[in-house]
Amino acid sequence: MSLTVNLYYTGTNGSARKFAEEMESSGVAAAIRDEDGNERYDYFIPMNDPETVLLIDSWRDQQALDAHHASKMMQQLADLRDKYDLHMHVERYVSVDEPSSDERFIRK
């Protein structure tokens, strides 16, 4: 089982994109990707909302996510969110380790 958290960062005047760019250029995003249990940490820009950046953040399990939340990087992240005055919307998903009937619709 893994956990995926979709975080939508929204700002004004390109601030969400600047936040994501600084997360990447400062090395904070890379450090998070290197944390034990991190399976994915990627930023995306929705086509219909240029003032929002989507972060897809996946973890092996709740314990790995809890360790991340207790890490020093969380303060760096919070400081950057404040710097760019971002607001957040969060969605949380738990994977199911079962075959899916959706496979017939997926072209590989």
Rank of each mutant, 00 (worst) to 15 (best):
Y41T: 04
P46D: 05
S95V: 13
S2E: 11
A20Q: 02
A30Y: 04
M74K: 06
P46A: 09
E103P: 03
S2W: 10
P46C: 08
P99G: 14
H87D: 15
S25H: 06
S100Q: 05
E35S: 00
K108W: 07
E51N: 10
V28F: 13
M47T: 04
L3S: 03
S101K: 13
M74Q: 12
E24H: 01
T12E: 10
V5D: 08
I45N: 03
A78T: 13
K72R: 09
S2F: 13
D79I: 10
S58R: 15
M23L: 05
M88S: 09
S26Q: 04
V28K: 07
W59M: 05
A29N: 05
M1V: 13
Q63I: 05
N13Q: 06
K108E: 02
Y9C: 11
V53I: 05
P50A: 11
F19M: 04
R60I: 07
S2R: 09
T12N: 12
L86K: 03
E35C: 06
D85K: 13
P99R: 14
A70N: 03
I106H: 12
L55T: 15
S26T: 06
S95M: 14
N6L: 15
A29H: 09
E51G: 08
E24W: 03
G27Q: 01
F44T: 01
H69N: 14
I45Q: 15
Y93W: 11
V96S: 07
T4L: 09
L3C: 00
S101A: 05
E24M: 11
S25M: 06
E98Y: 02
N38D: 12
T4A: 11
Y41E: 11
E35M: 12
M1H: 08
S2C: 03
T10G: 01
